[in-house]
Amino acid sequence: MNQLTDFIRSRKSQLATPGIDWEARKEAWIRSLELLYSRIEQMLGETIASGDVVLRTNTVSVFEEPVGGYPAPQLEVLIGAERVFFRPKGLNVIGASGRVDLLGEGGTVTLVREESEDQEGWSVILQRTPSLSKTPLNEASLKLALEKVMLPLP
């Protein structure tokens, strides 16, 4: 084997992703989205009961490498005439095991799914620069996130 062949094979083996079961990860990801949306529904429970907020779930198409294309649930939140969406971005992201973007007319906020040994949680990225600021998803951070993505009141 010459040095060139050796170099190319060595690079390929070092960068190879060791047998990740993307299908299983995708299924866990879809389940985690469903859990996230029910948690948001709980947080908004009072306003849903009073009719101030209406939730709808629909399906969007996600494509990401190396998973490919797949359908995933999206949560639509109607607050009066305004709408915001919790849209799944993908599971193959840096430093986390999934990402959902909260989209509104005023902007976008990123939510990341973080897993530790036996539990998973969602965090809200409040700012990226000059340094990263994130906080666990709860009623207070959901309020901050909604404020960021909804249009300011006139």
């Binding site: 960068l15 840096i94 430093g95 990225i125 994130k134």
Partner: peptide, 23 residues
């Protein structure tokens, strides 16, 4: 960032990449 973290975990400068897709 794109091919996996070192065993010690992400370096501080990598925090700003949190949640970004590879693209």
């Amino acid at each position: 960032a794109l091919h996996g973290h070192a065993p010690a975990g992400p370096a501080p400068f990598e925090q700003r990449l949190l949640g970004l897709t590879p693209e």
